[in-house]
């Protein structure tokens, strides 16, 4: 279908550009690494209490590293007015959003997969739950984050000081997702039973759906010149 081949073209283009410049991933990765290190200074990793806020720390770092990447993702589209070029070519404006969401998702997952082990090592944290489940929560939580984040990044890029503006508009809207993601991650890391985390996973999936559908419906209005 033409829609998906356009989505694929956008993802491929973003990966090519990133492969060449490595701007996005390097800054996101370094930021995440740095944030973990600072967290381990701020919260003594040897204290038992810190283990309880471990899931929260993970998502705080992911969120801030993510915003860093989201901010950049539409700056390159604004340069030379590429967004107009995309709009001219895209049959359906939402293909642009879906493509950008997909490439941002890839970048964020890379950052998360690299920084998770660093978290575990520096905090000497031992998970009692399964790794597969942890990765599932991370994936689901990131989908919602990136969907809403990409949409708002496309909006914020037209404003002055867009870098500061994006987290300010994004984080309040993502409060529900962050609560659910932290709860689910905590339950899984503590090795709690199916009943404890499955509800949260379902909630996250529901939020993901909202955060994907509403921006897709509104994106045409955002694209107008």
């Amino acid at each position: 279908m033409k829609y998906w081949s356009q989505v694929r073209a956008i993802v491929r283009k973003d990966l090519q550009a990133e492969f060449r410049t490595k701007e996005l991933l390097s800054s996101m990765l370094l930021f995440a690494f740095l944030a973990v290190v600072i967290m381990s200074f701020a919260f003594d990793p040897t204290r038992e209490v810190v283990k309880q806020v471990f899931p929260g720390m993970i998502w705080v770092v992911f969120a801030f590293a993510g915003v860093l990447g989201l901010n950049r993702s539409f700056l390159t589209e604004k340069h030379n007015d590429c967004i107009a070029g995309l709009t001219l070519a895209a049959n359906d404006g939402s293909a642009i959003l879906v493509g950008k969401v997909a490439s941002n998702l890839i970048f964020m997952l890379v950052v998360e997969l690299v920084s998770l082990p660093i978290f575990f090592v520096l905090f000497d944290f031992r998970s009692k739950g399964s790794l597969g489940l942890l990765l599932l929560v991370v994936l689901l939580g990131t989908v919602g984050f990136v969907a809403m984040g990409t949409f708002l990044a496309a909006l914020a890029v037209h404003a002055k000081h867009s870098e500061v503006l994006l987290p300010i508009i994004l984080f309040p809207l993502l409060v529900p997702l962050l609560i659910a993601a932290v709860q689910a991650t905590g339950a899984i890391l503590a090795g709690q039973g199916f009943g404890e985390w499955s509800l949260w996973l379902k909630i996250i999936a529901g939020f993901d759906l909202m955060y994907l559908v509403v921006p897709t419906l509104l994106f045409e209005y955002l694209l107008e010149v």
């Binding site: 949409f151 809207l173 409060v175 609560i179 939020f207 909202m210 209005y221």
Partner: peptide, 23 residues
């Protein structure tokens, strides 16, 4: 246009905020 979009998204988010905090 952007304010309208944000006003819609923000309001649709309210129930999510409410229920997530409740749960």
């Amino acid at each position: 246009r952007f304010s309208a979009i944000l006003g819609i998204v923000g309001f649709l988010d309210v129930p999510l905020v409410w229920f997530s905090i409740r749960w």
